[in-house]
């Protein structure tokens, strides 16, 4: 299994793994690490569908703000479904970082939805469902991020699948010959990844 670079423990705070490998990460290596991981995933044997679905799930997990029932459900799905776990955990970290920038947008969208008079009855009925109260659907950031990530889920899935296929057929060979790819390949990190792989 690929090494996990980032994972969520609580809310939006990414916590770095404490393995020997990552304790060596410093400065430039730390910046290159996600890129190297991403390239490794793209260049792996995993199918584009598995990678795309993992990234879509990670988008939902990364955008939504709480570690709760929804996160557990997503974990269940990514563990049970044959999606690329490395892509999921890498994506989770990236989308979490992105969510910090998008939170105002999520809040605005969530507030608009939750306070819309036409669907107040619907929200009220959901509000009285214990399970839904548990995921805090009535939180503006949660609602905004969840709805936006759901809306983006299918388009993102197909778009990522298309891009991965395109990358593998047309760009993978060229990229591997580029100077940056050589640098990445030359780093201790990449060597370590390779040895793990």
């Amino acid at each position: 299994m690929d090494a996990v670079l980032n994972f969520h423990v609580y809310g939006r705070i990414p916590v770095r793994s404490d393995s020997l490998l990552f304790t060596r990460l410093k400065g430039k290596d730390a910046m290159i690490k996600p890129l190297a991981s991403f390239l490794k995933i793209l260049n792996s044997e995993a199918s584009p569908g598995q990678i795309s679905l993992a990234l879509c799930f990670s988008m939902v997990a990364g955008f939504t703000p709480f570690f709760g029932l929804l996160t557990l459900c997503l974990l269940f799905l990514v563990l049970v479904l044959k999606v690329n776990l490395s892509a999921f955990f890498l994506g989770w970290g990236l989308f979490t970082a992105l969510a910090f920038l998008l939170d105002p947008l999520f809040h605005g969208a969530g507030f608009w939805l939750l306070s819309h008079p036409g669907i107040e009855g619907f929200w009220t009925s959901l509000y009285n469902m214990p399970v839904l109260r548990l995921i805090r659907f009535n939180n503006t950031v949660f609602m905004g991020s969840f709805v936006i990530s759901l809306l983006l889920f299918i388009p993102l899935f197909f778009m990522l699948q298309f891009l991965i296929k395109k990358y593998r057929s047309q760009f993978m060979g060229w990229i591997q010959k580029t100077r940056i790819a050589q640098i990445i390949k030359g780093t201790k990190i990449f060597m370590a990844y390779k040895s793990l792989g």
Binding site: R12, F106, H107, F111, L114, S115, T124, N139, T140
Partner: peptide, 16 residues
Amino acid sequence: PEKALRSEGVDILFAE
């Protein structure tokens, strides 16, 4: 909400 609270949001309350 007094202002958009980043990453915390606001809990909207409905009738119980």
